[in-house]
Write a protein that binds this DNA or RNA. Structure first.
Lengths: 235, 235
DNA sequence: TCCGAAGGTGACCGACCAGTCACCTCTTGA
DNA sequence: TCAAGAGGTGACTGGTCGGTCACCTTCGGA
């Protein structure tokens, strides 16, 4: 949960070494968790891949497998999501006109796709989280906490756009969930396709530009060829 | 994989008993897998809950835990999805006008939501599948096979609507995936909320009617308050 | 009533793995 | 050069669970 001090190189030699070791362990853990999932990963393999003894893992992550996984999630997955939302949907980005809103959310969708496209292991980790968590209220609470800031930031952007009149007056939180869910769905399909070699052509390669355009068109312009008679008042 | 003969009562007494026992086992397995996930479920607990000895499980499902899970998936989850799509999107349902297409897909979305709303254990099973499968190409292939018919049916409906001019000329398969993904996303959010008691109000109760309306509005009418200048030619 | 087989049963086995700890190495400072 | 301690190490332990199989119950037919 606590983030290590990522300050540059004005740390003692010892501390720099510790930090590097910690990162090596997280890298190895990311790879193994990504390949095997939480249950399938073993600490022996993580230790071997990080080129440390298993005992050393416990010096750096006293909470064991669980703490390792949680740290990874906070420091790699959630941090990445925050960077995307801060880049594409900063609080001061204008969303006053439909065109501005469309462009901003398109950037957001594209940012998410590209982030995970270039960080496949993080994607695999992200995708393997739900099943582990859904059967354990405590873990689920933690995750909701972790992701809360991200969802909130998207929701605020949706609210701003609705308030400015550029988006339909729908409830903001569910709309934010839909936005995120669409990207998530595409990513999951691609993670799946990548895993089952023969069937991949059913989905095609992940092209962030084309995919972002598609999702944006569907969500913002709508699938229908006719114009809705009037913005539906609520839902 | 093979479906048991569900013909009525013109089976021998012995066969009827076997069938009932099989169903009792699947019921118990559904409950336990749903609560604990694949890894967390134990055959001892399933056997105990089904009120059979563990050995008996192996008489009915010689493939063990794996076969039990796969049978459950085919006979409960996938069959349910097929029923929904056959009801809401039969091959002969007219999709020629935008209004017809909108209504048909709205029924489809509503059907999915309501199906899972009334079959919570099936929902939990469905939600817990991805992580298990994503790390194993063989299992993934099986799942794609299992779900293929469902996705295909939705894709065909989308193609018909596009051919009839009532939907934008976007690639049909990704659009079908988006449709399914939106419902899946909402369901997952609710499965999650249900699991973490304190945080549930962030999502609210699952109201199939309101949720179906929201998703339909977003996907078919679009989020923007302005009219798209022209149907985008492709993606 | 008795016999034989079909099939239910749960104690048991072996594999697996998270987590521990006694030991060892390597750095540091005197 | 050496002593001390910080910290790395991996063999070991305890517990868990999927899968097996020798035994037993039950039931149908003679």
């Amino acid at each position: 949960m606590q983030v290590p001090p990522t300050d540059p190189a004005l740390l003692s030699r010892r501390d720099r070494e510790r930090l590097a070791r910690r990162l090596a362990m997280l890298d190895a853990a990311l790879a193994v968790f990504g390949e095997k999932g939480f249950e399938g990963a073993t600490l022996d393999e993580i230790a071997e891949r990080a080129e440390f003894g298993k005992g050393t893992l416990y010096n750096y992550f006293p909470g064991g497998k669980d703490e390792l996984y949680r740290s990874l999630f906070g420091e790699r997955v959630v941090r990445g999501l925050h960077e995307v939302v801060e880049t594409a949907l900063p609080e001061d980005r204008p969303l006053g006109t439909p065109a501005e809103a469309r462009a901003a959310f398109r950037d957001f969708i594209f940012g998410l796709l590209e982030h995970f496209e270039t960080n496949r292991p993080v994607l695999r980790l992200y995708m393997s989280e739900a099943p582990r968590v859904i059967h354990d209220p405590e873990r689920m609470g933690e995750m909701i906490e972790l992701f809360g800031g991200f969802t909130d930031a998207v929701t605020r952007a949706v609210e701003r756009a609705i308030a400015a009149g550029s988006l339909r007056p729908l409830p903001a939180l569910p709309v934010a969930h839909l936005l995120i869910g669409n990207v998530r769905g595409v990513l999951m399909a691609h993670a799946a396709a990548e895993c089952a070699p023969g069937k991949a052509e059913r989905v095609g390669a992940l092209d962030p530009t084309a995919t972002a355009d598609l999702i944006t068109t569907v969500l913002f312009d709508g699938l229908l060829t006719t114009v809705p008679t009037a913005p539906s008042p609520d839902a």
